[in-house]
Simulated assay, not measured.
Amino acid sequence: MTNPKRPSHYESKIDPLTYMKANMSQANYEGFLIGNVIKYVTRYPKKNGLEDLKKARDYLDKAIDLYEEGHIHASSVAKAFGVPVKLLEDKS
């Protein structure tokens, strides 16, 4: 039985995401993950519905894992998407 999260046409000896994480800069890998979140959330109403939302969640979970590992910093995410870093500063 084919894993719905990993269709047979994606089966390979090299996992692309593992390869990308190991060989891309942290910023580029992070941008790839967040870019895919945006792509799937944006297109879900007109293309694949729930399937696209699940894909977005999968990429978001990977980005959250990076953040929890200390590999992503909110300021780098803000810069990547043009959000002023001042908006992320603690207001207390």
Rank of each mutant, 00 (worst) to 15 (best):
T2Y: 05
P4G: 06
K5N: 15
K5E: 15
P7R: 04
S8F: 06
S8W: 07
S8T: 12
H9K: 15
Y10L: 15
E11P: 02
E11D: 13
E11T: 07
K13Q: 09
K13L: 12
I14P: 01
D15P: 02
P16M: 07
P16L: 10
P16R: 08
L17T: 02
T18F: 01
M20T: 00
K21A: 07
A22M: 02
N23D: 03
N23G: 00
M24E: 08
S25A: 04
Q26C: 00
A27L: 05
A27H: 11
N28E: 12
N28R: 08
N28K: 11
Y29H: 07
G31T: 02
I34H: 04
Y40F: 15
Y40E: 05
Y40S: 03
T42L: 10
T42K: 14
N48H: 11
G49C: 02
L50N: 10
E51A: 12
L53K: 09
K55G: 04
R57G: 08
R57T: 07
D58N: 06
D58P: 00
Y59F: 13
D61Y: 04
K62R: 15
K62G: 01
K62N: 03
A63D: 06
A63V: 02
D65R: 13
Y67G: 05
E68S: 06
E69Q: 14
G70T: 03
H71W: 02
V77T: 14
V77Y: 07
A78L: 02
A78Y: 06
K79W: 02
A80E: 10
V83G: 12
K86G: 08
K86T: 10
K86Q: 14
K86C: 10
K86D: 12
L87R: 09
L87P: 01
L88W: 10
L88Q: 11
E89H: 10
E89T: 13
D90G: 11
S92L: 10
